[in-house]
């Protein structure tokens, strides 16, 4: 086992410049020929936050418990959005990666396992950019960071891992059943509204609270809200649960990949 693993690892390691170059190209390709470049990554979630804040903040701010700042609602919204955006973007990256990179997979022999690494790398950089811009907005609103922000790198990695592992599984299936790529965004839209991001769980009648326990993404966004807005530790067992789910999807994706890899290029 180890005897086989070492040359494979060395082979992958020889492609480290490729990974770097691919991540750089990926980021540049997203905003090629646009003047504002990476700023656009922030515009969409911020626009959404602005809309909800303007429409809903006066109705809802009074109902957000345990908060001291007057900007509690926009910060609540933005921290939830940060977790959601990282998760859903990573999921969509994983979903599209095989079909988008189809030409490359068909034409060039390189370690395929590096594709998710590249996706994770570019999603991390995007996520970090999004986070730093949101932090700038928080500072502007007078909401200062504290020690609990140290959770953020770990939470970001967890959100990306969870999204990517789920995305990869459906991405592999999508090579064979292209409907999946159309269906997933619809499901995500439902999931977004089933997750307390725009509203708080405390605003809903208590009898519905039980259903939200079944939504793991709600645990993810809650962790972001805990750390950023409430400035407290997230529930550890939630993080363990999310990590376990991500692990299960990673194993399922790897298992499905091994089963379909000999057919993959034929269907791209």
């Amino acid at each position: 086992m180890i005897q086989r693993a070492i040359p494979i690892a060395r082979y992958w390691w020889s492609y480290r410049y490729f990974v770097r170059s691919a991540i750089r190209n990926d980021l540049r390709a997203r905003y090629a020929r646009s003047k504002l470049g990476l700023l656009w990554a922030l515009v969409q979630p911020l626009a959404m936050v602005l809309i909800y804040t303007l429409i809903l903040s006066h109705l809802l701010s009074a109902k957000l418990p345990e908060t001291s700042t007057v900007y509690a609602y926009p910060i609540y919204l933005m921290s939830g959005m940060l977790g959601w955006t990282l998760f859903s973007e990573a999921l969509m990256r994983g979903l599209g990666i095989f079909v988008e990179q189809g030409e490359l997979i068909k034409k060039v022999a390189f370690p395929r396992a590096l594709l998710p690494v590249i996706a994770f790398g570019s999603a991390t950089i995007n996520g970090a950019a999004l986070l730093s811009m949101m932090l700038a907005v928080f500072l502007f609103l007078g909401h200062w960071p504290d020690i609990h922000y140290l959770w953020l790198p770990g939470l970001i990695a967890l959100a990306l891992w969870l999204g990517l592992s789920i995305g990869l599984l459906f991405g592999l299936m999508n090579v064979f059943f292209r409907d999946i790529h159309q269906a997933v965004p619809v499901v995500l839209q439902f999931l977004f509204w089933l997750t307390p991001i725009v509203y708080a769980l405390s605003m809903l009648p208590p009898e519905y609270h039980g259903y939200f326990a079944w939504n793991p993404v709600a645990k993810l966004t809650a962790a972001f809200q805990d750390v950023i807005l409430y400035q407290r530790n997230p529930a550890e067992w939630h993080l363990v649960l999310l990590g376990s789910i991500a692990m299960v999807f990673t194993i399922l994706s790897a298992g499905l990949y091994l089963r379909v890899k000999h057919e993959l290029a034929d269907h791209l």
């Binding site: 410049y17 490729f18 170059s21 691919a22 540049r28 390189f110």
Partner: peptide
């Protein structure tokens, strides 16, 4: 979208070059 030089650089990296 990328120049010939950028693509060439990336193409070389795809061969496992540093």
């Amino acid at each position: 979208e990328f120049t010939g030089r950028e693509n060439a650089r990336h193409g070389l990296s795809m061969m496992g070059l540093s």
